[in-house]
């Protein structure tokens, strides 16, 4: 499986995502510079975390309008799997591939920690590997200042009904997000945005290997 790791000016988890994807058997990651106008030939697109364009205007706002965004829209429409993590999630909401928006954390501070998550839908192409997992909730790191997910009540209802809410914070909510949302998909289920960092939880020495399952599910 060929994965594109998008690189915007200011992306800083691109390297981590590249390493993580390449460490999964059968996955091959390549960096794709933000000026590319096509994503043809890739089976998945990974949108990394960081501070694209230094968070100028709003987190993700400028990256969502960078030259590569047209190719990203095409890829999404054609059913290619797209995973946006942290700033990648913010970019996906900013370019309209995912509903809602990410506000400043309710505590008004950046939060770096490991959090417990409930996998609310194990039937998406990103989460099938969690289906048989008994050791729950899963543990993934977070590191963000703007992860407070919000949307209007109708959208929330749709998200709930369609099973688009994939991850929820379990126990305590670190950023005040609506309905404890940590990650959602689009309606067709091929685009996932999440605040937690699965690429930071790839083996036991990192504190958790629960993130690897997302990459393994994606590969299927």
């Amino acid at each position: 499986m060929r994965c594109a790791v998008l690189v915007f000016p200011g992306s800083n988890c691109d390297h981590d995502l590249y390493k993580a994807a390449n460490s999964v058997e059968g996955m091959e990651a390549e960096y794709i510079w933000y000026t590319h106008d096509t994503l043809e030939g890739f089976d998945a697109v990974l949108v990394p975390g960081g501070f694209s364009y230094g968070d100028a205007l709003r987190a993700g706002a400028l990256a969502a309008r960078a030259p590569v965004h047209k190719a990203l829209q095409c890829a999404a429409a054609s059913g290619i799997r797209i995973l946006g993590i942290c700033n990648g999630f913010q970019i996906l909401t900013e370019c309209g591939l995912l509903p809602g928006a990410l506000h400043r954390n309710s505590g008004l501070r950046f939060v770096c920690d490991s959090v417990s998550l409930e996998v609310s839908n194990t039937e998406t192409c990103f989460t099938t590997g969690y289906a048989g997992k008994t050791d729950l909730p899963i543990q993934l790191p977070i590191a963000h200042g703007e992860g407070n997910y919000t949307c209007d009540p109708e959208t929330l209802q749709k998200l709930e009904e369609n099973g688009q809410i994939v991850f929820r914070y379990s126990g305590s909510n670190p950023n005040g997000s609506l309905a404890d949302i940590a990650g959602i998909t689009n309606e067709t289920g091929n685009v996932l945005g999440m605040m937690p960092h699965p690429e930071r939880a790839m083996s036991a020495w990192m504190g958790s290997a629960d993130g690897r399952i997302i990459f393994e599910s994606l590969r299927q």
Partner: peptide, 8 residues
């Protein structure tokens, strides 16, 4: 408040 994990 510090990202102490980036670069994994």
């Amino acid at each position: 408040q510090y990202d102490f994990m980036v670069r994994t």
